[in-house]
C-alpha cells in the first residue's frame, strides 16, 4: 500500500473534490422571503378577518333584529372602551389580572417542572399519579371555585388555588410527553460517552424535551388565564380589587352589554398579546434551531 506521495496527493485531491461536490449537491437549500413580505403575509389576513367581523356586526346591529341591550353597535363598545382608556382604569384592571396570571403561572411552572420530571422518570410515580394528572387536565378548573371559596374565603388564595389547578397539569403533562418523545438513540449517545445521570439530563434529556415542555407551558398559560377569569367572575369582593373578570361581572350586573363586550375584547387582547409576544417567538426559536419549523 506504499504509494508514492505524489499519487497519494492526487488521490486525496480527487477524494476532496468528490466530497465537496457531493456536499454541494446534497446540502438542503433554504430560500428566505424578504422581511416586508413576511410582515405583510402575517398581518393582512388577521386584519382582514377583524374588518369582516366588525362589518358583519355593524350590519347585524343595523338590521335591528336584536334589542339594543343585547347587541350594541360596535361604536358603542368602542366608546365604552375609550372611556376606561381615558380614565385610566384599563391599566389597573388589566394589571390586576395579568399580574395574578403571571405570578400564578410562574408558581405553576415551579411546581409542575419537578412534578413532570418525577412522573416521566420514576415508574412508580407515573403509574400512581400519571392518570390523575391527565384527568385533571380535562377537569375544568372553574369546578374548583366553589370549593376554594369555602376553604379560603374570597381571598387571593382562592384565585391562586384555581389558577394552579388549571395550569400545573398542563405544564407537567407537556414535560412528560416532551421527555417521552426524546429519541432513545440520544440517550444511548450519552451512555456510550459515559455521561452520568445528571450530566445526561442536563446536556441531553432536558434540551431534547424542550419543545414538548414549551408546548406544555403555552397551554399552561392559556389554562391559567381562563381559570383566572372564571375565578374572578365568580369570586368578587372589594378586597380582591377589580380585575378583568370582576369588571366583566360588573357590566353584567348593571345590564351594560357594551361593558361586558369590551371586557371580553380586553381578555382576548391580553390572551393573544401574550401568545404573540412571548410564546410564539420562543417556540419559533426553539423549533427552528432543531429544524422542526420551516424558516420563514
Amino acid at each position: 500500500m506504499a504509494a508514492p506521495p505524489e499519487t497519494v496527493r492526487v488521490v486525496d485531491r480527487d477524494a476532496a473534490a468528490a466530497v465537496a461536490g457531493l456536499d454541494a449537491l446534497d446540502t438542503p437549500t433554504v430560500t428566505r422571503t424578504p422581511l416586508w413580505r413576511r410582515a405583510l403575509g402575517a398581518t393582512v389576513p388577521p386584519v382582514l378577518t377583524l374588518v369582516v367581523v366588525i362589518v358583519a356586526w355593524q350590519a347585524l346591529w343595523a338590521s335591528a333584529l336584536f334589542p339594543e341591550f343585547k347587541l350594541p353597535a360596535p361604536g358603542t363598545v368602542a366608546e365604552q372602551f375609550g372611556e376606561i382608556v381615558v380614565d385610566g382604569s384599563i391599566w389597573s384592571i388589566t394589571w390586576t389580572s395579568v399580574g395574578r396570571a403571571v405570578v400564578g403561572f410562574l408558581v405553576a411552572v415551579a411546581i409542575a417542572t419537578p412534578l413532570g420530571l418525577l412522573v416521566a422518570k420514576v415508574a412508580f410515580v407515573r403509574t400512581a399519579i400519571g392518570p390523575l394528572l391527565s384527568g385533571m387536565q380535562s377537569l375544568p378548573s372553574v369546578a374548583w371555585v366553589p370549593a376554594a371559596v369555602l376553604w379560603f374565603g374570597l381571598t387571593d388564595a382562592t384565585i391562586y388555588f384555581v389558577v394552579l389547578l388549571g395550569s400545573v397539569p398542563s405544564i407537567a403533562n407537556g414535560l412528560v410527553s416532551g421527555i417521552d418523545q426524546v429519541p432513545p438513540i440520544l440517550g444511548r449517545v450519552g451512555d456510550v460517552m459515559g455521561a452520568g445521570r445528571l450530566a445526561s439530563a442536563r446536556l441531553i434529556l432536558l434540551p431534547a424535551a424542550l419543545p414538548g415542555y414549551l408546548a406544555g407551558c403555552k397551554q399552561g398559560w392559556a389554562f391559567a388565564w381562563r381559570s383566572l377569569m372564571a375565578a374572578e367572575i365568580i369570586a368578587t369582593s372589594p378586597q380582591l380589587g377589580v380585575g378583568l373578570g370582576a369588571y366583566l361581572k360588573q357590566g353584567s350586573d348593571v345590564n351594560n352589554i357594551a361593558g361586558v363586550i369590551s371586557a371580553i375584547v380586553l381578555i382576548l387582547i391580553v390572551g393573544v398579546g401574550i401568545e404573540l409576544l412571548v410564546f410564539k417567538p420562543l417556540e419559533r426559536r426553539v423549533l427552528q434551531t432543531r429544524g422542526l419549523a420551516a424558516p420563514v
Binding site: I185, L186, V192
Partner: peptide
C-alpha cells in the same frame, strides 16, 4: 471506546 451508530444521532439543537 467511541461508538458510531447507523443514524448520526447528533443533538439537533
Amino acid at each position: 471506546p467511541a461508538v458510531m451508530f447507523q443514524e448520526p444521532a447528533l443533538l439537533p439543537w
